[in-house]
Simulated scan of single mutants.
Amino acid sequence: MATNKKRITVSLTEDQYFTLENLAKEKGFSKSAILALALENYSRKTNYVKSQEKQLNVE
Protein backbone atom coordinates (compact mmCIF):
# COMPACT_ATOMS: atom_id res chain seq x y z
CA MET A 1 0.00 0.00 0.00
CA ALA A 2 1.13 3.55 -0.66
CA THR A 3 3.07 5.23 2.10
CA ASN A 4 1.94 8.75 1.15
CA LYS A 5 -1.57 8.67 2.60
CA LYS A 6 -4.31 11.29 2.53
CA ARG A 7 -6.76 11.91 5.36
CA ILE A 8 -10.48 11.98 4.67
CA THR A 9 -13.65 12.31 6.70
CA VAL A 10 -16.36 9.70 6.22
CA SER A 11 -19.90 9.74 7.57
CA LEU A 12 -21.34 6.36 8.52
CA THR A 13 -24.60 5.23 10.00
CA GLU A 14 -24.44 3.79 13.48
CA ASP A 15 -24.84 0.27 12.05
CA GLN A 16 -22.06 0.82 9.51
CA TYR A 17 -19.74 2.13 12.21
CA PHE A 18 -20.56 -0.84 14.46
CA THR A 19 -19.81 -3.23 11.58
CA LEU A 20 -16.54 -1.45 10.78
CA GLU A 21 -15.46 -1.48 14.40
CA ASN A 22 -16.23 -5.19 14.80
CA LEU A 23 -14.44 -6.13 11.57
CA ALA A 24 -11.38 -4.18 12.64
CA LYS A 25 -11.31 -5.90 16.03
CA GLU A 26 -11.89 -9.38 14.54
CA LYS A 27 -9.23 -9.00 11.87
CA GLY A 28 -6.74 -7.06 13.98
CA PHE A 29 -6.63 -4.14 11.53
CA SER A 30 -7.32 -0.47 12.02
CA LYS A 31 -10.66 0.91 10.84
CA SER A 32 -8.72 2.86 8.23
CA ALA A 33 -7.11 -0.33 6.91
CA ILE A 34 -10.49 -2.08 6.69
CA LEU A 35 -11.91 0.80 4.62
CA ALA A 36 -8.82 0.91 2.38
CA LEU A 37 -9.04 -2.85 1.75
CA ALA A 38 -12.76 -2.59 1.02
CA LEU A 39 -12.10 0.17 -1.50
CA GLU A 40 -9.36 -1.85 -3.20
CA ASN A 41 -11.62 -4.91 -3.43
CA TYR A 42 -14.53 -2.86 -4.78
CA SER A 43 -12.28 -1.22 -7.36
CA ARG A 44 -10.87 -4.58 -8.50
CA LYS A 45 -14.37 -6.06 -8.78
CA THR A 46 -15.81 -3.19 -10.79
CA ASN A 47 -12.78 -3.10 -13.09
CA TYR A 48 -13.12 -6.86 -13.63
CA VAL A 49 -16.81 -6.51 -14.49
CA LYS A 50 -16.05 -3.67 -16.91
CA SER A 51 -13.35 -5.74 -18.65
CA GLN A 52 -15.76 -8.68 -18.97
CA GLU A 53 -18.43 -6.42 -20.45
CA LYS A 54 -15.94 -5.08 -22.99
CA GLN A 55 -14.98 -8.62 -24.00
CA LEU A 56 -18.63 -9.54 -24.51
CA ASN A 57 -19.18 -6.46 -26.67
CA VAL A 58 -16.15 -7.28 -28.83
CA GLU A 59 -17.12 -10.90 -29.51
Score class of each variant (00 low, 15 high):
1 M>C: 02
2 A>M: 13
2 A>L: 10
2 A>P: 03
3 T>I: 15
3 T>G: 12
3 T>P: 07
4 N>W: 10
5 K>R: 08
6 K>C: 09
7 R>S: 09
7 R>C: 07
7 R>M: 09
8 I>W: 02
8 I>P: 00
10 V>C: 10
10 V>Q: 06
11 S>G: 08
12 L>I: 02
13 T>I: 02
13 T>L: 04
13 T>F: 02
13 T>A: 01
13 T>P: 00
13 T>D: 03
13 T>C: 04
13 T>K: 01
13 T>S: 14
13 T>Q: 02
13 T>R: 00
14 E>I: 06
15 D>C: 02
15 D>S: 13
15 D>V: 05
15 D>T: 12
16 Q>C: 04
16 Q>G: 06
16 Q>R: 03
17 Y>D: 13
20 L>M: 06
20 L>N: 03
20 L>R: 04
20 L>C: 07
21 E>G: 03
21 E>Y: 14
22 N>Y: 06
23 L>H: 13
24 A>W: 02
25 K>L: 08
26 E>Y: 09
27 K>M: 05
27 K>A: 06
27 K>L: 11
27 K>C: 02
27 K>H: 07
27 K>G: 00
28 G>F: 02
28 G>R: 02
28 G>V: 08
28 G>H: 03
29 F>H: 03
29 F>V: 00
29 F>N: 00
29 F>Y: 10
30 S>M: 08
30 S>K: 01
30 S>N: 04
31 K>M: 08
31 K>P: 02
31 K>L: 05
32 S>K: 00
32 S>C: 02
32 S>Y: 00
34 I>F: 06
34 I>Q: 01
35 L>P: 11
36 A>W: 00
37 L>V: 01
37 L>I: 04
38 A>P: 01
38 A>W: 04
39 L>Q: 05
39 L>H: 04
40 E>F: 05
40 E>Q: 09
41 N>I: 12
42 Y>R: 07
42 Y>A: 08
43 S>I: 08
43 S>A: 08
43 S>G: 00
43 S>R: 05
44 R>K: 15
44 R>C: 10
44 R>M: 14
46 T>Y: 09
46 T>A: 03
49 V>C: 04
49 V>P: 08
50 K>F: 11
51 S>D: 14
52 Q>L: 11
53 E>S: 11
54 K>V: 14
55 Q>D: 09
56 L>I: 11
56 L>F: 07
56 L>K: 12
57 N>K: 15
58 V>M: 05
58 V>G: 00
59 E>C: 07
